[in-house]
């Protein structure tokens, strides 16, 4: 368990499952289960339609969206926004990411990882924020389309930032 949120989520699931027969009458169980399934299906359908759109970033990365797992990493660089943006694109391509959706004006890159047998896929948002002193900040946000992850997304983020640092050895 990596943080309090994970522990609370697991405890809540166990407690809810244990208490469900007492909380609700038996004929309600199927209804609750059906509502839950419908909500998950609606969410996944929305995910499929909005995953490629940069405008959906706020929805996926919102802390109120409990159906996605978010991971944010930030790192400062002594480079201007434009140079760092080009570098981030280069490193993402070198790392093997193929589906890059780029917004030059917002200095935002979306990487869409496809759904596979192993995972529901993830969206990676890389934003380059300019600072007053001419330097920039790289913000790496990954969104996994599942309630719980086993830490692979965090590892990917750490690896990406390490690769970014290493890419300055030319």
């Amino acid at each position: 368990m990596r943080n309090l949120k994970d522990v609370l989520a697991v405890v809540a699931i166990i407690v809810f499952t244990a208490l469900m027969p007492r909380l609700f009458p038996a004929d309600m169980h199927n209804v609750i289960f059906a509502v839950f399934i419908v909500l998950v299906v609606i969410f996944q359908m929305c995910s499929f339609s909005g995953r490629s759109k940069l405008s959906w970033k706020r929805f996926y990365t919102s802390s109120f969206n409990i159906l996605t797992t978010k991971n944010t990493l930030k790192l400062d660089f002594e480079f201007d926004q434009k140079t760092l943006f080009e570098k981030a694109k280069e490193v993402l391509i070198t790392n093997g990411y193929k589906n890059l959706i780029i917004d030059e004006s917002r200095k935002l890159i979306l990487v869409k990882e496809r759904i596979s047998f192993k995972s529901w896929g993830e969206n990676i948002y890389v934003t380059i924020l300019g600072k007053d002193n001419g330097n920039s900040e790289l913000v790496y946000e990954s969104v996994a389309f599942q309630i719980y992850t086993w830490g692979k997304n965090e590892d990917n983020g750490t690896k990406f930032l390490a690769n970014m640092e290493e890419s300055f050895i030319i």
Partner: peptide, 14 residues
């Protein structure tokens, strides 16, 4: 971009 970084003298190593 790499040549530009090198030109600015901001590369970590060569």
């Amino acid at each position: 971009v790499n040549l530009s970084i090198l030109k600015q003298g901001k590369g970590k190593a060569i």
